[in-house]
Design a binder for these strands. Sequence first.
DNA 1: GCCCAGGGAATCG
DNA 2: CGATTCCATGGG
Length: 281
Amino acid sequence: MQISKQGSDIIVSDYGFYDLALTLDCGQAFRFSQTDNGEWVGIALGRQLKIRDRGDSIVFYDMTEDEFKTRFIRYFDFERDYKSINELLSKDSTLKSAIEVAGGIHILRQDIWETICSFIISQNNNIPRIKGIIERLCENFGEPCGDGFSFPTAEKIASLSVDDLAPIRAGFRAKYLIDASQKISQNEVDIEKIEEMSSDDAREELKKIKGIGDKVANCILLFAFGRVDIVPIDVWIKRSLTQFYGEEKFPDFVSDYAGIAQQYLFHYARMLGKEGIEEKK
DNA sequence: GCCCAGGGAATCG
DNA sequence: CGATTCCATGGG
């Protein structure tokens, strides 16, 4: 990967096969949107990002080299060798097809607290509405940040009641957000310690929070902690695994990167649609 | 009106 | 244990 400074911007090139749009809009992050001139705008790690994909290079507007290297290489998972991973996964014909359309996705390493809230909100919900609820959560309870609002802290949410959250229209999930904010701000669930724990222990620790079960916990382990062997199983992945492999798991050789495979398959399956998955078998 | 959405808690046998 | 039911809200 090449990193260079141009004015107040960062230009990144030679990063291999990477699809910024898919990475930001494949159902793992909910705070990015594309403006009509093709630029991606969102708020992550407490700052507003403006990014443009030029095909053979990516521009991060108004960012220092130090900030990019210390925070956003990790956030965008630029150091992982996706080319080799994709070559390995392509030995499976289903994943080969998925990689042809989704192989440019990187797994993001998002803020832990934000990811916890985002995937609590995701349960029994659809992506456009998840985005709306998160946006209202930030507008109502976050701090001004760039052209928008930062993600509110756990302490801020812990100071609120379920009724206070009514404007965000999260439905039955509001009480789960309150429970998460209280347990995390009081260190009853220590999100820093989870980094050191085995995935099984980490999952149980996260499940102490009401509204977090296996699937949401696995989303947090994958999309915040970068545990790319973890596979969250939602309705699309369940359908796909059963249809393509006859059981609810990937082939064994995939296991170290099953979380990445899962994300490729998630996008591929949604693109095909329910009927499309049936036909492909 | 119905069904579905990146599920989980509560309840019941 | 496994199976059912309910949960708020909004789009198709």
